[in-house]
């Protein structure tokens, strides 16, 4: 999954979101070691300070822990992951409903559309 940024939102928040999604979808599995700030900054083509800020936020959210010997690891707390996953899903769902309303569709229309739709590819 490549990194892509909209440059009018703080970059550290977008990095944070991107890493959270990688954790939620198992790209960075529970308990696994995260790459170093420098490695991730270089991969994403962003400033290491910005990456550091995203990582700190990840720690405050309880999604990552710094371990003195093994660096930074993804949390093993399933409750936190569940909660965060739900938060992100709710945000996406709200966004979808808003967009459908923008097209003049009701929430029910949108639901019907969801049932009909199949996502193909990745």
């Amino acid at each position: 999954m490549p990194w892509a940024f909209k440059e009018n939102r703080p970059i550290f928040q977008q990095i944070y979101d991107a890493i959270v999604i990688r954790i939620l979808n198992g790209t960075y599995p529970m308990g696994s070691k995260l790459p170093s700030v420098r490695e991730m900054a270089e991969e994403a083509g962003v400033n290491p300070n910005t990456m550091q800020r995203a990582m700190s936020q990840l720690e405050s959210a309880g999604l990552a822990l710094t371990n003195r010997t093994s660096g930074r690891i993804v949390t093993t707390d399933e409750e936190i992951l569940k909660r965060v996953k739900r938060d992100y899903a709710i945000t996406s769902a709200r966004e979808f409903i808003r967009e459908m309303q923008g097209l003049g569709l009701s929430k029910e229309d949108a639901k019907a559309l969801l049932d009909e739709s199949e996502v193909t590819g990745k």
Partner: peptide, 26 residues
């Protein structure tokens, strides 16, 4: 744009605007 922490914008030999990039974006 993505690698900058800060910007110093200069115009006519003076500083016009200085700030942290993420703060300016916000």
């Amino acid at each position: 744009e993505l690698i900058l922490d800060e910007v110093v914008m200069i115009k006519d030999g003076r500083v016009h605007l200085q700030g942290e990039t993420d703060e300016l974006r916000e």
